[in-house]
Amino acid sequence: MHEFSIVMSMLDLAEASAREEGASRIEAIHLEIGALAGVVPEALEFAFQGAREGTMASAARLEVDYLPAVARCNTCDASFELDNRWGVALCPTCGTPSAQLLQGKEMQLARLEVA
């Protein structure tokens, strides 16, 4: 249940960013989470419901875009989307397993809707 720690960091970052903009409350928080970030959507939402009380985001929506994992093959230089949730990145062109992940581990606060 590390999602609670992630949500606490998210709220700190969101409140600081909202204050910088002179906002008084946060209406929505938009995240981008990679498919291999190890974040469980239900756990994230559950943690958010519990942690938002008493913050500027106490009535905010949490909206999450899940990004697919994308790897680059070191042998033939092709970029490809992983077709599984197990992190196995076999190049569809030449079959080599790839270690180089271009996308998939993101945990990003993309934008806020504030008032």
């Binding site: 969101a14 906002a23 606060l109 993309a110 934008r111 806020l112 809707e113 504030v114």
Partner: peptide
């Protein structure tokens, strides 16, 4: 309500 672009890692 206005939109603010943040684009920062939650791990910042």
């Amino acid at each position: 309500v206005r939109t603010v672009q943040v684009q920062k890692s939650l791990m910042t």
